[in-house]
Design a binder for these strands. Structure first.
Length: 659
DNA sequence: TCTTATGCCCTTTTT
DNA sequence: GGGCATAAGA
């Protein structure tokens, strides 16, 4: 079997000459885990106890004991956490990040699958659907199923069906069971939902598309059904290290088991109190399953908290104590006493933003480092007002949530040009491009798409030159330019050149006609083109863009030098820490977030204990200073402070008054 | 009458 | 940005 040599993963590096004094740099409990000879091991660790530290030192220890860095696989769930973990591990062994195999499950899955596309029945150049693409395709399928049934009003929205399907796959549960659990009222519509899902699956195959769940599921199939492949990878990865194990779902646990099946050297690290991804099938009781799957697993516990002051830790312990389903843990802080966490009531959400921004401004004036400050929230939209105030005060910030860079319309638009060239059967991208033409909406785009597919021996790319006759008259000029642009693009395979060509030949015009902030978006696209220079294959470029959708490439380039405040959802903040943390929107309904869906009743889709764990994660991100903010009113009227604030014992917070 | 364009609501969390 | 209702257009 041949391994592609991808420039990001230069292999076979000699073990580093660095020497680490493990016994001096780790405490006793960490040291035990780090220097364990091998075999399955489970590290149960609370917040701030050095979980990632243990993993990265494990890498260093293995390397010092003769293991080749490229034979170690590091897995975790979110992009940010994986990047941080890889960076730390690499710096410990004194090597470039590129010498290590690691990243998110999806990232590694994609790398492996790309090499075996044919084996699992995909044509080369398959496109990866990101979240919005998936929803778009589900929407198309939903529309056609609904059209075929007169009484289809009760069919849930495309995004709901998408989530449901995803959940079923990630937990290996039957679709019908998930439907019955979530929509007991809709029994008669279960069949329709199943039809939508079946159509979606069929279309994906026809169009040579792969969604996020396919990456994991296909990986499991590949490793299970193809013994040679499984043997190759499981022999190759002598040690598999998994961070945030409490967040892995059935599929991911299976991936871990398969990839480590030969050597059985697994180190799984997790904390049940920080399990916050149950909506995608994670269950902290998986930690118990780990012990079941590996009865010989050694268990280590880390209980010394190095991150937070005792005051912050006390508040966090008090908050999580209200949860009944948890493994008891006694975390001990070794830090010196600090200030009590502040409880800040504010008139409304605008004052909340004002408070946070001015507090940050004060801190800067006193010489604080911007990179030590974070603002955390439950939902993306809550960051908008803070962003506005920070902009007004000229404070640089990095939003790590909300609209992701690659999910913005102009980025997706320009990538659509590249996608139809690399995968001409990508219906979603074709329609996206067609709908940019004036007078072309869903109906006309569908008509043109049918025309493009009409002859089996010609691809859409061949047919597009004659498709002008179907398009509305007023789009004739733009359509001609579009076709000319496509013809140009077919001659190029360098992503950077393709972006420039698409921009100049066709998209720039649309950009200025459509968006009031076209200038900014054009700048984004120019930067995207510069970023793309490092890729010499459009296929590789496109798949990396889809998988690492959360990363802003230009921010990543000079990330270390940039001083900025971080704005992040609590979910994405997991595993990270800051000197000062503001948690905003601590109101009932926002945090905890309560879903008042059309179909779900509160209590049905909503797990208060999980929300409380999320709150616990938020609290334990802070090292020195913590502000808990809530508002008395919002656009919706009077709102209540979060019930989670009441959970914290009196005396552990200091209420401050803002005039 | 079928389509497209537009204005006004609201916004769970990730790959 | 997305969904939905409604106005404008063809």
């Amino acid at each position: 079997m041949v391994l592609y040599s991808m420039k990001k993963y230069a292999l076979n590096i000699a073990p580093s000459a660095h020497s680490t004094r493990f016994d001096e740099e780790l405490n006793r409990e960490q040291l035990e885990a780090v220097t364990c000879a091998g075999g399955p091991m489970l590290v149960l660790a609370g917040a701030g106890t050095g979980k990632t530290r243990t993993l990265t030192y494990r890498v260093a220890w293995l390397v010092e004991n003769g293991v080749n860095p490229s034979d170690i696989l590091l897995l975790t769930f979110t992009n940010k956490a994986s990047k941080e973990m890889m960076r730390r591990a690499a710096s410990l062994i004194g090597a470039d990040v590129a010498t290590l195999w690691g990243g998110t499950f999806h990232h590694i899955g994609n790398l492996i699958l790309k090499r075996h596309a044919g084996v699992i029945g995909y044509r080369d150049g398959f496109s990866i659907l990101d979240r919005t693409d998936t929803k778009d395709l589900f929407d198309t399928c939903r529309t056609s199923v609904a059209a075929a049934h007169k009484d289809a009003q009760l069919l849930p929205k495309a995004s709901v069906v998408a989530d449901l399907h995803s959940y079923a796959r990630n937990t290996s549960t039957a679709q019908s069971k998930v439907i019955a659990d979530r929509f007991p009222v809709l029994e008669e519509n279960a069949k329709l939902i199943l039809d939508v899902i079946a159509l979606y699956e069929r279309k994906k195959r026809e169009l040579n598309l792969v969604d996020f769940d396919d990456i994991l599921q296909n990986l499991v199939v590949l490793l299970k059904d193809h013994e040679d492949v499984r043997e190759y990878y499981s022999r190759r990865f002598r040690h598999v290290l998994v961070d945030e194990y409490q967040d892995t779902n059935t599929l991911q646990a299976e991936v871990v088991a398969l990839l480590s099946s030969y050597h059985r050297n697994i180190m799984a690290v997790g904390d049940d109190a920080q399990s916050i991804f149950s909506f995608r099938g994670a269950n902290f009781e998986n930690i118990l399953n780990f012990q079941k799957s590996y009865p010989d697993a050694r268990i280590f516990k880390l209980t010394t908290n190095y991150r937070s002051t005792p005051q912050i830790l006390n508040a966090a312990n008090s908050a999580i104590a209200a949860n009944r389903r948890q493994f008891p843990k006694d975390l001990v802080s070794v830090r010196e006493a600090g200030e009590l966490p502040a409880l800040v009531p504010l008139d409304d959400t605008r004052h909340q933003a004002l408070f946070v921004a001015s507090k940050i401004k004060d801190a800067i004036d006193e010489g604080a480092s911007l990179s030590g400050i974070a603002v955390l929230y439950r939902s993306h939209y809550q960051s908008m007002e803070v962003q506005m105030e920070l902009t007004r005060l000229g404070i640089p910030y990095d939003v790590r949530s909300g609209m992701k860079f690659f999910e913005q319309a102009h980025i997706k638009d320009i990538l659509a040009y590249l996608r139809i060239i690399s995968n001409p059967s990508d219906e979603i991208s074709w329609k996206r491009l067609l709908k940019m033409l004036p007078g072309v909406g869903n109906a006309t785009a569908e008509k043109i798409w049918r025309y493009l597919l009409a002859l089996p021996n010609e691809t859409p790319l061949d047919r597009v030159s004659t498709a002008g006759k179907i398009a509305p008259k007023k789009s004739a000029e733009r359509f001609a330019a579009f076709i000319k642009c496509i013809e140009e693009l077919m001659k190029i395979n360098l992503p950077s050149d393709s972006i420039d060509t698409a921009l100049r030949g066709s998209y720039e015009k649309h950009l200025f006609l459509t968006f009031p902030d076209a200038e900014n978006r054009l700048r984004d696209l120019t930067q995207l083109s510069e970023y793309a220079v490092r890729y010499n294959s459009t296929d590789v470029f496109l798949s990396e863009m889809a998988i690492q959708g959360a990363e802003q490439p230009m921010a990543a380039v000079n990330e270390d030098s940039d001083e900025h405040v971080v704005l992040s959802s609590v979910h994405q903040a997991k595993g990270l820490e800051w000197k000062t943390v503001f948690i905003i929107g601590l109101n009932d309904g926002q945090f905890p977030s309560i879903k008042f869906g059309k179909f779900g009743k509160s209590g049905n889709n909503w797990d208060e204990e999980e929300e409380r764990r999320l709150f616990y994660v938020a609290l334990t991100r802070a090292k020195d200073e913590l502000y808990l903010c809530y508002a008395y009113t919002s656009y919706a009227g009077l709102i209540r402070p979060s019930r989670f604030i009441d959970d914290i014992a009196r005396g552990l917070l200091e209420e401050i008054e803002i005039v």
